[in-house]
Design a protein around this nucleic acid. Structure first.
Lengths: 214, 214
DNA sequence: TGTACATCAGTGAACGCGCGTTCACTGATGTAC
DNA sequence: TGTACATCAGTGAACGCGCGTTCACTGATGTAC
């Protein structure tokens, strides 16, 4: 049996050692290549070199595996955002700083969507997963959700006096809508396949619209 | 065989008569109930009361059937838009009229997404389908695409002097992004399950953002 | 320090399912003479 | 006006596939004495 051969080649111990993490990572790779629909339990076990039913020691369900992949994907996005925010060097004007931080969130969001479309789709594929995933990721250490980071940036804008508290109400949904929608158009819609300078210009115009429109 | 019974019950002629249209309509119903993934060839033939392979007289592929459903869904959206636009009674100010028409496009788009989420997802599920479907629908007679209607509304805005030609450039993508993104949040995201008055307010605020931001 | 034993991670085999698709066919239709 | 025949829409049966999931099991680990 070639399967057993492959399995033996990858692993000489009976126990795997860290099967749960390995399955999630295999699932992430599957999502990378084919989006959430490609996160198939049997394929994940195959890649890890383990019997299909071994997954049930660590996940109740196929859904549970997909959920773990989804939240890991969200975590990856959150980490990328935090990394970019950390890179910003604040200037004198607090309002300007807050605007820069908000924009940075959007930039990372759109870059992630374009560079990792499969993972991006997986991140928001499970209904209700958008706001929930504050769990520590298996692949990183960010404890904040993209949504929380967006909210924080908007709060800064209020603190800097660049946004009134009335307009702050629900602003997270308006900005998220605009940026998320552009991401959809860029990876699935009519803007799919557009090259870098052109997409960057549209992104800038979208951010301007948000900034002036808020 | 109960299948044969059901088939005989629904149809007494050997020829179906209009199988292609019937399959598309069954596919639309499937999409209504379960989104694009629920558009299953075998299930469509089952509902129509026909052997599974009969579909291959009218569609090359499962993909072809899904494509037809997708473009019918887009057509349904376009028709709803045109109906709403026809209901508007123009006032004195051409700029005001143009703004009303643009807003009406968005209102219908979001209403459609909320009332027919499965169909809405199906409409934009096939990559590259967003801009293409100008084919006459099987279920209606609109020859215009939602995208074309949006563009027309923006052009009116320019003609009315309410939008400069420079800002008109790419504005279709900005507005579409914002509205499409909100649709996603409303049907799949954190705003899912929100009731009517609350959603209406967010929609209004989004339209205001677009209007001021453009 | 050694040994019995409970624990539980991973195995092997099988299940039922529903899918898309292909094959050779049958039977109604409508056109050519 | 009647009849042979080409056309082609729909049939029946089967295919191979891969999936998620369940069952009774085996074998390594680590803890209690």
């Amino acid at each position: 049996v070639p399967e057993a051969r492959a399995r033996a080649a990858q692993r000489d111990t009976y126990r795997h050692g860290d099967l749960r993490r390995a399955l999630v990572e295999a699932g992430i790779q599957l999502a990378r290549d084919g989006g959430p629909d490609a996160v198939v339990l049997r394929e994940a076990t195959r890649r890890v070199g383990v019997a299909p039913n071994a997954a049930y020691r660590h996940f109740a369900d196929h859904r549970a595996l997909l959920g773990a992949v989804c939240s890991a994907a969200q975590s990856a996005l959150a980490i990328a955002m935090e990394r970019e925010l950390a890179r910003l060097s604040p200037g004198q004007d607090p309002a300007e700083n807050a605007r820069d931080r908000l924009r940075a969130c959007g930039v990372v969001y759109l870059r992630f969507a374009q560079e990792e479309p499969g993972l991006f789709r997986a991140a928001f594929s499970v209904p209700g997963s958008m706001e929930l995933a504050h769990h520590p990721s298996l692949t990183g250490n960010s404890r904040r959700t993209p949504f929380q980071l967006l909210n924080a940036a908007l709060d800064e804008l209020v603190n800097a006096g660049a946004l009134t508290p009335e307009r702050r109400q629900g602003a997270e949904f308006l900005t998220w809508s605009a940026v998320h929608g552009l991401a959809s158009l860029l990876i699935d819609g009519p803007l799919r396949g557009l090259e870098r300078p052109a997409t960057a210009e549209i992104e800038q115009r979208l951010f301007d619209m948000i900034q002036h429109g808020l």
